[in-house]
């Protein structure tokens, strides 16, 4: 998400990235501990087993709304990037619909297929990001890092919280646990994946600061895109934004598809359907409509990602629901012991 997060005008954004990653990993550790209580069930089934089916339904519904919402926002964000940076004359809806159809088909094929495809795509995506960021390297750009902590620690913390919010995505594992291989008993992969993603984020942030400098980066809508546009190696490798586009499509595809699948799957669980597939098409329509209706323009979308808004919003799924789960679990445990 480097595109969205180099919000504030300071060169220490990478410190914020490290901070966010550590916070996210701690958060994910906490989530993985809770996930281990589920014993391979979804959060909905877990709550039902604890005897509170109303709570289960509400939690499930929150999950559906959250994942649908994030999927729609990501879709819109992706579409906006396409329209503003690559395809000036193509209407936004074309990208939304084409991508949503692809998403729907993948969701229809099931999680196994999605994960297989992701397993294939993620190494390519990571490689693409690493190569394209390495290409932006300039020796004289190293000066851009100084002075360190010019404005004190508070903007760093603020930026850290913004970025931390994006790591809350691991919480969707609460719904996907039954798909996990039975042999995986400890859920340490959750903090681990946060650390890996964080490493990538910090790398990208470092290279953005090197190639553009903090001031230029901060006024850009898509700083990383500008960074790769400035690439010129040996007068031959120039403007590698085509490669960036490919990576960006792949990365967004994975994210949207996983969130959308989680939404569809959770909806199926709430309604106690044997097969979630009839839900795919209606929810696709909802996703596309939402992605258009939620924001009037791109500034509104960016506004949504301010720390006061987005971090608070994500806290629902990342902090409050897990806390609620613990409270319910402890209460049931105590009652069980009393009897």
């Amino acid at each position: 998400m480097p595109i969205l997060t180099v919000g504030d005008r300071y060169q220490d954004v990478w410190i914020a990235g490290i901070l966010a990653t550590l916070m996210g990993a701690a958060n994910a550790l906490f989530l993985s501990w809770i996930a281990s209580l589920f014993d391979g069930r979804t959060v909905v089934e877990f709550l039902e087993a604890l005897g509170s089916s109303l709570l289960a339904k509400i939690t499930g519904l929150i999950f559906v709304i959250f994942t649908m919402h994030v999927a729609s926002i990501t879709l819109r964000d992706f579409g906006e990037l396409m329209v503003t940076s690559f395809y000036g004359e193509t209407p936004l809806i074309v990208f939304l619909v084409v991508f949503a159809l692809l998403t729907a088909w993948s969701a229809y094929a099931g999680l196994e297929v999605i994960v297989r495809a992701a397993q294939f795509l993620i190494p390519l995506t990571v490689l693409g990001i690493l190569i394209s960021s390495t290409l932006t390297f300039r020796v004289d750009g190293l000066e851009n890092f100084f002075p360190l902590l010019e404005k004190g620690i508070s903007p760093v913390v603020r930026g850290g919280i913004t970025q931390w919010a994006f790591y809350g995505d691991v919480a969707i594992w609460f719904m996907l646990l039954p798909h996990l291989n039975r042999s995986v008993r400890h859920y340490l992969f959750m903090p681990l994946s946060v650390l890996l993603a964080g490493g990538l984020l910090v790398t990208v942030l470092l290279f953005i600061v090197i190639s553009l400098g903090a001031r230029l980066a901060a006024i850009q809508t898509y700083p990383f895109l500008l960074a790769v546009e400035t690439v010129s190696v040996a007068d031959f490798i120039e403007r590698v934004e085509g490669g960036f586009l490919i990576v960006w499509v792949a990365a967004n595809f994975i994210k949207i598809v996983v969130f959308f699948y989680t939404a569809v799957f959770t909806m199926g669980k709430i309604l106690k359907l044997n097969d979630y597939r009839p839900l795919v098409l209606p929810l696709t329509v909802i996703m596309v409509s939402l992605s258009i209706l939620l924001f009037e323009n791109y500034d509104q979308l960016r506004n949504f990602f301010r720390p006061e808004v987005y971090a608070a919003y994500v806290s629902i799924i990342q902090v409050f629901i897990p806390l609620m789960l613990i409270v319910v679990w402890l209460a049931r445990k105590k009652r069980g012991r009393a009897q």
């Binding site: 990208f95 084409v98 499509v249």
Partner: peptide, 8 residues
Amino acid sequence: LGLFGIMV
């Protein structure tokens, strides 16, 4: 759709 189309 250009490169996006190929990627899709």
